[in-house]
Design a protein around this nucleic acid. Structure first.
Length: 876
RNA sequence: GGGCGAUUAGCUCAGCUGGUUCAGAGCACCUGCCUUACAAGCAGGGGGUCAAUGGUUCGAAUCCAUUAUCGCCCA
């Protein structure tokens, strides 16, 4: 069979993914096996795959594939989320381009456009995940706005309302004037910006020569001022308290008040109070029963209440009013000033604090069990450093503003009667029934009720995801009992509050237990300069292009190699290149094994027998290590262990050891053992690199239709001979010593050498001579009782190896080399002696530690003796 | 301003509750090799006062305190 010397991923990936799909290997239905469940963090339905998804889903796929290969009933549920604000914004933009303003459409018409958009663009991202190899149960694909998920959201709203957790209130909310909706606190990003501090003079009413000066970054808001406030301890303004001052330009009189909140040091010590447009002012306004004048429209232009600049944008007005204040003599000065301004996460518009009526969910009760669960490790965080962050947030949790002034989403199931009172119901029929009960008017129909115009925050559906994907609010459905709670959740720390915390709350509230046992936090994918990957920077590689270039396996491995849990990953294409190179290494190792001609009846060489014995032990040791890494969710370490096992131990040592001489066949026994090792290695690696492992697994022997590595079992760790492994490491050292020497003396690897060993207490094992001879190309190894003259020597532990090299030895150089080593050993011994000479150490340290020091001492002494003798010998 | 976390090789990071020659890994780097599985490779090699200072201890990368720098969260 002719096999290409370069592995070509494109040829195999398509083939095997189709095969897995056809064979329904990703499908899970409840059975008697132990379930392993995971739900995907639903990406935005109209989004496209980015590097963060690649990392996140690679890790999920590794976990789920491994669980499947451990014989569990593995179920990974995929799906998308409707992303209320982002999707609505996209649809609005698209309509805008077509010349259709949103407000020219009815709600129903708009939603039709939104659904069309969703049907057209939705799920592209899931198709892209297939290219990565994701083994989701696609038959279960969910959408946060499909029927089952929507029903759950509405049911929960009604339930929480009836439990008294949901209330309607007037609050200062974060208003996004671009999206024209309220945002939760978590959706606001604060950024430091260069702005200006305007000092503005207010005249005291009736006293034209008396003034107060306030400082503000937002001069346009003075039109909404309803007071000026000073600190009660501030002697400078005592005489003004109780008087009124006039708002410049409009000359509206407002009182001068005292409030502890005012910082005497900041600005002028006088604070203007605009309750409708600042959260702190609002609170002060509440304390002093001040009027709130809302001078802004929903789109960020000034309203009639402002009196001036009506209909103009807030930022234009800021410039204009400064000029006008200057003209009127009210502008004292303008200073440069750095402050933090909130921006919308979705639209990047500057957030307006705005008073409005919204729906809120009380968090304090729901948070309690969720906090406890994480602090007591009922839900385990990986890495645990995120527990602190979580606790801090949960202990200071604020009520959740769950309404959004949008159309795309779950419409709030609140129905208003004509008098402004309302009923909350899952269906219109129920609403009518409740309304009739409430009013006693049995002639009421749905036409007399008006449903709330707003929709729920997207997270109000995502937080139920682990329940709703299994139709968990349907009492007739038993599936949820089998799959819930799920096992692992893989997500980003950025959404620990948005999503993780809330899912835990919902889990306890609606299932009485946690939604997932483990949360694995991935890092943020950044570029090599630590910048976040973003479209605007153009520093994000196109994931599908990467897959084309390096193969899905290569990309998966590249993503994972440098991404310990919770740490940001600094992505660089060289990582995926390393992944591709590894795939190629595997491919070539396979080519070697496959191309070997097997000779029936040929006797197994001793070196091969030893190689098989050694590698079999090595393999078991590695499996044990890999298992323990997985237990600790140290997934990249597990991969590194396999990488090392395959590349260094298997390819560089084992395969070289069993390699027959040029054009010679290999014996049956060794060949069979090698195939078995290869099989085990492919299984270990399969969760990480599913495609190449499947391809090779099918080449290793004839497989029947319907067989696949992905439904085979992981090799299990068996006991191993640690002493043999230790001895082998010493032989490797001796081999490296000889190779090093060849390089130094410019000796061809093909030239066979002789070796003599003066055995010490450790470092030489006769049984492994065949290994030594084969790998170092020695024609003989013999043990000697004394130093060999005319030979170069080196030490492994206390055994001295000699390679006779008449005429090639530079005595001075050899002596210098040995003396340096001797010096190092003496220094080491010195340190050990100091420790052992310390009475306190000997009496306080554990026996084991002391014993160890004694052994170190003995080893060092033995080595020193050998070195000293060698030096003397050379000097003769 | 309040809180949390970090600082270990050129880069990215391991190093759990102090004690194996503990100072590690991968990449990068240097030297020699196109040796018929693989140059996407092989063999060999160099490299760090564990941020600084002080303390606890027989013993500190590891524990404590202070400082510096950086990051994140909250206000």
């Amino acid at each position: 069979m002719e096999i290409a010397s370069k592995y070509n991923p494109a040829e195999t990936e398509e083939k095997w993914y189709s095969y897995w799909m056809e064979q329904k290997f990703f499908r899970s239905v409840p059975d008697e096996r132990e379930p392993y469940t995971m739900v995907i963090p639903p990406p935005n339905v109209t989004g496209v795959l980015h590097m963060g998804h690649m990392l996140n889903n690679t890790i999920q796929d590794i976990l789920v594939r491994r669980a499947r290969m451990q014989g569990k009933n593995a179920c990974w549920v995929p799906g998308t989320d409707h992303a209320s604000i982002a999707t609505e914004a996209k649809v609005v933009n698209k309509l805008q381009e077509e010349g259709i303003p949103k407000n020219s459409l009815t709600r129903e018409e708009f939603l039709k456009h939104a659904w069309d958009w969703t049907d057209k663009h939705g799920g592209i991202i899931l198709e892209q995940l297939k290219k990565l190899g994701a083994s989701c149960d696609w038959d279960r694909t969910c959408f946060t706005m499909d029927e089952i998920r929507s029903a759950g959201v509405i049911k929960v709203f009604v339930d929480l309302y009836r439990k008294g957790h949901i209330y309607r209130g007037i609050r200062m909310v974060n208003w996004d004037p671009a999206a024209k909706t309220a945002l939760s606190d978590e959706e606001v990003i604060y950024r430091e910006v260069q702005s200006k501090l305007y000092y503005i003079r207010y005249q005291v009413e009736g006293e034209p020569d008396q003034h107060v000066t306030i400082a503000t970054t937002r001069p346009e808001t003075i039109l909404g001022d309803t007071a000026v406030c000073v600190n009660p301890n501030d002697e400078r303004f005592k005489h003004l308290v109780g008087k009124k001052v006039l708002v410049p330009l409009i000359n509206r009189p407002i009182p001068v008040l005292e409030d502890e909140y005012v910082d005497m040091e900041f600005g002028t010590g006088c604070l203007k109070i605009t309750p409708a447009h600042d959260i702190n002012d609002y609170e002060i306004g509440m304390r002093h029963n001040l009027e709130s004048i809302d001078i802004l429209n929903d789109d960020g232009t000034l309203s009639k209440a402002a009196q001036l600049y009506v209909g103009e944008d807030r930022f234009d007005v800021r410039e204009k009013i400064a000029v006008d204040l200057e003209k009127s003599g009210n502008l004292v000065k303008v200073e440069d000033y750095t402050n933090k301004v909130g921006y919308s996460e979705r639209t990047d518009a500057v957030i307006e604090p705005k008073l409005s009526t919204q729906w809120f969910l009380k968090m304090s009760e729901l948070a309690k069990p969720a906090l406890k669960a994480v602090m007591e490790d009922e839900v385990r965080f990986h890495p645990p450093k995120f527990k602190n962050l979580y606790r801090h947030w949960m202990e200071n949790v604020k009520d959740w503003c769950i309404s959004r002034q949008l159309w795309w989403g779950h419409r709030i199931p609140v129905y208003y009667l004509e008098d402004g009172s309302y009923v909350v119901a899952e269906t219109e029929d129920e609403a009518v029934r409740l309304a009739r009960e409430k009013t006693g008017n049995n002639s009421l129909t749905i036409n007399d009720l008006k449903q709330d115009e707003d929709v729920l925050d997207t997270w109000a559906s995502s937080w139920l995801w682990p329940i709703t994907v299994f139709d968990g609010f349907n009492p007739d459905n038993k599936e949820i009992d089998y799959y819930y709670p799920t096992n692992d959740l893989v997500t980003a720390p950025e959404i620990i509050f948005f999503w993780v915390a809330r899912m835990i709350m919902a889990g306890y509230e609606y299932r009485g237990t946690y939604p997932f046992k483990n949360v694995y936090f991935t890092g943020i994918v950044r570029d090599s300069q630590r910048r976040k990957m973003s479209k605007s920077l153009g520093n994000s590689p196109e994931p599908l292009e990467l897959i084309k270039k390096y193969g899905a396996d290569g990309v998966r491995m590249g993503m994972l190699l440098c991404s310990p849990a919770g740490n940001d990953i600094l992505f660089d294409e060289s990582l995926t290149e390393q992944g591709r190179n590894f795939a190629n290494k595997i491919w070539n190792a396979f080519r070697l094994v496959k191309s070997q001609e097997v000779a029936a009846g040929m006797e197994q060489p001793e070196s091969s027998a030893l190689a098989v014995e050694w590698f079999s032990n090595k393999l078991n040791q590695s499996i044990e290590t890999i298992d323990s890494y997985f237990e600790k969710y140290r997934i990249s370490d597990a991969l590194m262990e396999i990488y090392h096992l395959f590349w260094d131990e298997f390819s560089s040592w084992y395969l070289e050891l069993i390699k027959p001489a040029y054009q010679q066949p290999i014996d049956e026994k060794t060949h069979q053992a090698t195939l078995k090792f290869f099989d085990d290695l492919m299984r270990l690696l399969h969760p990480f690199m599913p495609f190449i492992t499947e391809e090779i697994w099918h080449h290793l022997e004839h497989r029947k239709e319907g067989e696949s590595i992905m439904v085979s079992l992981q090799p299990e760790a068996k006991p191993y001979n640690a002493e043999l492994l230790r001895q082998f490491e010493h032989v490797k050292e001796a081999i490296a010593g000889i190779r090093n020497l060849r390089q130094e003396k410019n000796l061809s690897p093909r030239e066979a050498l002789k070796a003599m060993v003066m055995t010490g207490k450790d470092g030489y094992f006769e049984r492994l001579d065949p290994v030594l001879k084969k790998m170092a190309n020695l024609e003989s190894v013999e043990t000697v009782g004394e130093k060999v003259k005319g030979a170069v020597s080196f030490l492994v532990k206390s055994s001295e190896y000699f390679i006779p090299l008449d005429g090639l030895i530079n005595v001075d150089e050899e002596i210098a080399k040995l003396e340096e080593e001797l010096k190092r050993m003496k220094g080491f011994l010195n340190g050990v002696m100091k420790k052992l000479g310390n009475e306190k150490f000997v009496s306080n340290a554990p026996v084991k530690v002391v014993e160890l020091e004694k052994k170190k001492k003995a080893d060092a002494e033995a080595k020193i003796q050998v070195l000293t003798e060698s030096i003397e010998n050379l000097k003769k």
